[in-house]
Design a protein around this nucleic acid. Structure first.
Lengths: 186, 186
DNA sequence: AATTTTACCGACTGTTTAGTCAGTCTGTAA
DNA sequence: TTACAGACTGACTAAACAGTCGGTAAAATT
């Protein structure tokens, strides 16, 4: 019954299927079961809708990650937990993953304030700093380390999404690749 | 004077700046210094232009990589050479890199025959197979290994493109990350 | 030299699209 | 019971767009 949400849901589905500009606002409204004007009641422009959708997805992802993250015994366990959580998020939210993938490489991404991005990355960076000072992690710039780690999870997500594995096999791949990642950064 | 090429060049530049659908064909023609109709003389539809551009870039990249690749002494040297060549290609062809990045995550990509993709990957896969049988590379599925390697170069490209490093520093980062990659896959 | 094919032009069009607007309906609070 | 606000509608419009077409001129083929 929440029309705003229905609009976002339909937009997500259609954007992934047809791309941002391949999807007319009229189709989004129709699919969401609302009038054309309603869409513009909630979102000033189509661009604003695209950006709102990205922000919404990012915050839901952040929530998921914070929920999944307990306090682990060792440093390695903490990193592993983060790694696994972010991979599972993508597996459980395929459309959302595909959308962010598309969004990040699009010109829209330039409209997201770099400050906000930095902000959301800080906890991660801090964790890496800690690992470096404890001489667990290789002494490389944290933003480089972060790029390498996130591009690895990114690639793994693409791999898992394009194959159909059993839960067991899937988990196997995830832990194998984590060990490989660990070998890379330590 | 080659109008087809001029159209492709302008399309590349504009697509990266405004996105596929954010760029009208009229603007591409104008920027290329040709008439509107000429664009449709060379490319039946706008979609055909997008795809032709992707194919063109891919073949130029393949050419570059084959030119850069000599026969190296050791297996590790061969892999390193490939790694370095593909990173430099992106650095020397930023627009092209950005475009393929955008293309691959777009719904257009579905129109590229999977058979052709497989074809172009085969030499790489064979090289990895060889590494596994010689017990140099970890015994993991080659498509997984390939995904991990290419997502790493991908991430590194993004990193290098978003920082301005001196040639020396740049090379430093590239060889450091190669060693990290090597640690991951062996 | 005659004929056909190809490269190229740019004005034009039918359609699609983002966004508007005048107004209805529902809840709520004075 | 009236007054107001905000959600919601869908017909509408102005602009933008992909693609067409009738035509010219040069190149290639006969």
């Amino acid at each position: 019954m929440d029309k705003r949400k229905q609009i976002l849901d339909s937009a997500l589905k259609l954007f992934v299927e047809y791309g941002f500009h391949g999807t007319p606002t009229s189709l989004i409204a129709k699919e969401a079961g609302v009038a054309n004007g309603t869409l513009f009641h909630y979102f000033a422009t189509k661009d604003a809708l695209v950006i709102a959708l990205y922000v919404d997805i990012k915050s839901r992802m952040a929530l998921y990650l914070s929920e999944q993250t307990g306090t682990q015994k060792t440093y390695k366990d903490t990193i592993r937990e983060q790694y696994i959580a972010s991979v599972y998020w993508a597996l459980e939210n395929k459309l959302e993953f595909r959308f962010t993938e598309q969004f990040k490489t699009s010109p829209f991404f330039a409209q997201i304030a770099p400050k906000e991005i930095e902000e959301s990355l800080k906890p991660f960076y801090d964790m890496l700093y800690a690992g470096i000072s404890e001489k667990i992690i290789k002494p490389q710039p944290v933003d480089l380390l972060f790029t390498l780690i996130s591009s690895q999870t990114f690639g793994l997500n693409q791999y898992l999404l394009s194959h159909q594995f059993s839960k067991t096999k899937q988990h196997q791949v995830i832990s194998d690749t984590f060990e490989m990642l660990w070998a890379m950064i330590t």
